[in-house]
């Protein structure tokens, strides 16, 4: 639907100029936690930094409690009380989203930044027709009339692969299947032509077959329109299908990042390697799966040094003394491990 896209782009008042070479989203030294009295704060996410260039698709992977969802929610301004950003910056096109007045921020949400939720079941209003839900954003942000926005909603639904969109636009969410509902969510999120799309495990609630369709759709939408993506999931296979860049989080830290293909081929952090070795691979069905021993540390008492040290097969004495910094180990590859030089084996 190129006409609709051009229309959307023309309608959009450019709130934030984005220069070439400058990241669209820049998260700098972000620390999220619960503020306690007299400096006794508990940090859940510590010192997370990453950049997302225009058109780049960044996947953040980690297990439950690793802080990946909190990081995403901090970007969206949706941290659940009493959790808050303790320090750091989240810049969108050079402007800090965290210190921005709420009113200005609201003008960005929708036309610039949009989010897709995990549960398509609950993220749609049960008593509003889905077409009207999609049309609400364009009406509010792009100043469209009810009729124009309704037409846009139908074309967005067609674009997200919903059959018979004109009829489905009049349906209520409970009349649609999970896959269709997630497509509606996606149509809603992209209806104002955002430049950054935040996804919080958008396919976890779906069947595997539907999952693949939705992931392909997301990938296609983003590459067609040059939309940047931040995609949070615990599923490495999902990252492989949608993202170009990858950041691995463990116990509130980014422990490794780089291009997806390179990280998968040659992980440079023991945790990433553990994740890859413990996940089944369809191309090599007879490969032995190696589980990671132990459990992630409790948020309240993380070990002094590397949080992965107690479970790590490469551990040395200095690992437990101080947290290893996230350092460049190869061009475009960062790893937070003192022993990353010992991890040069190529998987696959």
């Amino acid at each position: 639907m190129p006409g609709a896209t051009a229309q959307t782009a023309a309608r959009r008042a450019s709130h934030v100029p984005v220069q070439p070479g400058v990241p669209l989203l820049s998260v700098q030294d972000l620390t999220i936690g619960i503020r306690g009295s007299a400096g006794r704060s508990v940090a859940i996410v510590e010192g997370v930094s990453f950049d997302v260039a225009p058109g780049q698709r960044m996947g953040i992977v980690g297990e439950s409690g690793s802080g990946k969802s909190l990081t995403l929610r901090a970007i969206a301004g949706l941290l659940p009380k009493p959790v808050e950003v303790l320090s750091g910056r989240v810049e969108y096109g050079g402007a800090d989203l965290l210190t921005m007045p709420a009113k200005k921020r609201r003008t960005l949400m929708g036309p610039e930044i949009a989010m897709i939720f995990q549960e398509p079941m609950t993220a749609l209003n049960p008593v509003v027709r889905v077409g009207d839900q999609i049309a609400e954003g364009p009406r509010r942000h792009l100043g469209m009339s009810a009729k124009e926005a309704g037409e846009l909603a139908v074309s967005m639904m067609a674009r997200t692969g919903i059959p018979d969109p004109r009829r489905r636009a009049r349906a209520y969410p409970h009349e649609l299947s999970g896959g269709l509902r997630q497509r509606i969510m996606i149509a809603m999120a992209v209806s104002c032509g955002p430049r950054l799309l935040l996804c919080d495990e958008p396919t976890t609630a779906l069947d595997v077959t539907v999952q693949l369709q939705v992931l392909r759709l997301l990938e296609r939408l983003c590459s067609d329109t040059g939309t940047s993506l931040v995609f949070v999931t615990h599923d490495l296979a999902v990252i492989n299908q949608t993202c170009s860049e990858l950041a691995v989080m463990y116990a509130g830290h980014i422990v490794e990042s780089g291009r997806v293909a390179e990280v998968f081929r040659q992980p440079r952090h023991p945790y990433t390697r553990g994740l890859l070795e413990s996940a089944p691979d369809f191309d090599r069905p007879d490969r032995e799966l190696i589980p990671i021993p132990g459990f992630p540390p409790n948020v309240a008492d993380r070990p002094a040094g590397c949080p992965f040290a107690p479970r790590c097969g490469y551990v040395r004495d200095h690992c437990t003394e101080a947290m290893p910094p996230l350092a460049e180990v190869a061009p475009g590859r960062l790893s937070a491990c003192y022993e990353s030089d010992r991890l040069t084996e190529v998987l696959a």
């Binding site: 609201r106 949400m109 609950t122 509003v128 609400e136 509010r140 969510m185």
Partner: peptide
């Protein structure tokens, strides 16, 4: 606390609009 209200907030809708259009009918 429902996701659809959070989603509407995130879509940049004002409090008044959310109360009247999204919450009231429910």
């Amino acid at each position: 606390k429902q996701d659809y209200v959070v989603a509407a907030r995130l879509g940049g809708m004002s409090h008044g609009r959310i109360l009247v259009k999204h919450i009231a009918p429910n």
